[in-house]
């Protein structure tokens, strides 16, 4: 296991402004979504990835459109990074008929097969074996598609994580496991319940799985670590694991104030905000600044439109309650 820095990665990042736009879209989407949640337009629950945007953006930038990705209940970033339209993601949070999943999934279950995003999973760690299955499918079908699986640090202590890592290596699957280590599993610091320092990175060697620990707040470092792992998987060289060190600004979900965090910790991480830091790196001249500001204005407009269209979107058709249980759309389980 090595700790990767952008310099060490030495990778040429092709579309730096695209990476910035991707992160900015996630940030503004989630900030607006949370406001709407507090205003009771969005019901249920919500897990925000504010502060973690560099991971989803940097990883997704290393993928082809036909690659597969799987995310978690903290998954708005994961699906937006793959290019899912904001209005359909927002409408899903609103529980409207125009949502990605017709309102049947909600915030924790976002899927957009058209964008290669094969689900957001709310049972911690459950999707790592499923990611293996998708990678297995590419392998036996003889395509060179790669599967990426995002999961939290907490997921590394569940059995499915270990079964999946072993199977991925034994079957030499084209899968890249991406751990978003945000230091907490719900309200408990991950270090206090984990036998090793790097919950994912330190486990990988036990399965002969190549692994790297990455500064997950540096989008170029994320891209730099992901691109070679994806390329190796695509070339049939097998799986890899990336542990991204990052931090969530919000509480675990909904109204959790995150009071269990030591004083000053949040502020320290905010000083290393992935979006602000990258913006500074991108804006050496006035012209750079102007371009970014135009881009930001475009995103603001897109988010505003997503909100507007979701507020006006139709409610689900009551008849749809019973559809999509079985393939035939046969709603009855009996004759």
């Amino acid at each position: 296991m090595t700790v990767e820095t952008p310099e060490r990665a030495g990778i040429n990042v092709p579309d730096r402004e695209g990476l910035y736009a991707s992160m900015f879209r996630m940030r503004r989407f989630e900030e607006r979504a949370y406001e709407l949640f507090l205003q009771n337009h969005i019901h249920g629950t919500m897990h925000l990835g504010l502060g973690q945007e560099a991971v989803a953006a940097g990883v997704a930038a290393a993928l082809r459109p036909d690659d597969y990705s799987l995310g978690t209940y903290r998954g708005h970033n994961h699906i937006i990074a793959r290019g899912a339209p904001l209005d359909r993601v927002m409408a899903e949070l609103f529980g409207r008929a125009t949502g990605l999943c017709k309102g049947k999934g909600g915030s924790m279950h976002l899927t957009s097969v058209d964008h290669g995003a094969y689900g957001s999973y709310a049972i911690v760690g459950a999707h790592l074996p499923i990611a293996c299955g998708i990678a297995w499918s590419s392998k036996v079908r003889g395509t060179d598609q790669v599967t990426v699986c995002f999961f939290g640090d907490g997921a590394t202590n569940i059995g499915a994580f270990h079964e999946a890592l072993n199977l991925a290596v034994v079957w030499r699957l084209p899968v890249v496991f991406v751990c978003e280590n945000n230091l907490y599993m719900e309200f408990t610091p991950i270090g206090s319940v984990t036998a090793v320092v790097h919950p994912a990175g330190d486990r990988a060697p036990a399965y002969s799985l190549p692994s790297v620990v990455v500064d997950g707040n540096d989008v170029e470092a994320v891209y730099g670590a992901t691109a070679p792992a994806v390329a190796a998987a695509r070339a049939g060289e097998g799986p890899a694991l990336l542990e991204m060190l990052t931090y969530r600004y919000s509480g675990h979900s909904r109204t959790d104030p995150g009071a269990y965090r030591p004083a000053g910790e949040l502020d320290q991480w905010k000083e290393r905000d992935p979006i602000a830091a990258f913006r500074r790196r991108l804006t050496e001249t006035r012209a750079d600044m102007d371009r970014l500001e135009r881009m930001e204005a475009d995103v603001e407009r897109e988010v505003a439109e997503a909100v507007e269209s979701s507020l006006n979107a139709p409610q689900p058709d009551p008849d749809d309650l019973l559809t999509d249980v079985f393939a035939s759309n046969e709603t009855r389980w009996r004759t």
């Binding site: 459950a126 999707h127 074996p129 299955g133 499915a160 079964e163 199977l167």
Partner: peptide, 11 residues
């Protein structure tokens, strides 16, 4: 999990 992932993507 392997069966599920495979089934969703063509197997």
């Amino acid at each position: 999990g392997a069966a599920m992932g495979g089934a969703m993507t063509g197997l």
